[in-house]
């Protein structure tokens, strides 16, 4: 009799324990689902608010018009005007960040002594941690005056200064992902190369870099995505004037700078001008999504190979 109740008690205890375990697992799962909900929320808000916009502005005009004057009485909505600013500033940034980031990564991964690396990596991390608004301030009040001495007639707001500072900001990002990829290349490959009489430089560029190529490509692609989505540097230093140009010495608004400009003003919720920022945001989201997925896929590839 007593053994029977003992067993029953134990079973009850076990059941309650299992119930508790299940409950905890469900709680943890629902926390993990917040990330999915965030993405769904972003997609839902951007699409539903853009839909209101595209009901009034044909999507064809949005893609092909060469003027962006959403707040004028003669309103035009050509996203290419804003994209030209984004493209130009991103191109300048990447022209600096990709070579510099790659050289730094190769140097830190293949040449630098552990001591140098121990100092350099935290410094780069601190650089990466500086708020972008501070970089924007730096571009406007330090880099642009410096550039104006070299290029006379450069306007106070310009894509060049903003692009250069944006490039420096992205360097640590590209170099850290690239370095990770190169350090994941097995030492055996390097030793094989040395055994054939290659120098360190030859090994670095002919063996390690090709072996880590998908990782490097991922770093570049994620860098592009970073540059396209960067907001405060261009909003502060590149000006807010929509301008269809690929000339870096001009002032032009990017997609992100435009969104900031409209959000700072007091446009009523539901007006067409207000809806434009969601359409612009949707364009931005889709572009960065494309790059992020490509970057993710490439990064996963190098992780699987070694």
């Amino acid at each position: 009799m007593s053994t029977h109740s003992q067993i029953a008690g134990r079973l009850a205890h076990r059941r309650s324990r299992q119930r508790k375990e299940k409950l905890i697992e469900l709680t943890l799962l629902s926390a993990a689902l917040v990330a999915i909900a965030t993405t769904l929320g972003i997609v839902f808000i951007l699409f539903s608010e853009s839909l209101v916009f595209f009901r009034q502005v044909p999507i064809w005009d949005f893609l092909t018009d060469t003027q962006w004057t959403p707040l004028f009485s003669d309103a035009h909505f050509g996203i290419s005007v804003l994209l030209s600013g984004t493209l130009t500033s991103s191109a300048i940034a990447l022209a600096i960040a990709i070579p510099m980031g790659t050289v730094l990564a190769v140097y830190l991964s293949e040449f630098a002594s552990p001591r140098t690396r121990e100092i350099a990596k935290p410094v780069l991390e601190l650089l990466a941690g500086i708020p972008t608004i501070v970089f924007g301030y730096f571009a406007l009040f330090f880099v642009t005056p410096l550039l104006q001495k070299i290029i006379p007639g450069l306007p106070g707001f310009n894509l060049l200064g903003a692009g250069i500072v944006m490039g420096v900001m992205i360097v640590p990002y590209i170099s850290s992902i690239s370095e990770d990829a190169m350090r994941a290349v097995p030492v055996l490959l390097r030793e094989g190369s040395y055994a054939l009489g290659a120098t360190r430089l030859q090994t670095a560029f002919k063996v390690v870099v090709p072996a880590a190529f998908s990782g490097l490509a991922a770093a570049y692609i994620l860098g592009i995505s970073r540059a396209v989505g960067e907001t405060m540097i261009v909003a502060v230093a590149a000006g807010m004037q929509p301008n269809l140009t690929f000339n870096p010495t001009e002032s032009a608004a990017t997609v992100t700078a435009y969104i900031v400009q409209v959000a700072k003003g007091d446009l009523p919720h539901g007006s067409l001008g207000y809806q434009t920022i969601f359409a612009a945001g949707l364009a931005l989201f889709l572009i960065t999504l494309l790059f992020n997925l490509a970057g993710y896929w490439l990064r996963r590839r190098y992780r699987e190979t070694y």
Partner: peptide, 15 residues
């Protein structure tokens, strides 16, 4: 999660 890490911060503002 990987994609969310790369979404521009301004898009979170729109959300």
């Amino acid at each position: 999660i990987n994609n969310l890490a790369g979404v521009p911060s301004i898009v979170y503002g729109l959300l």
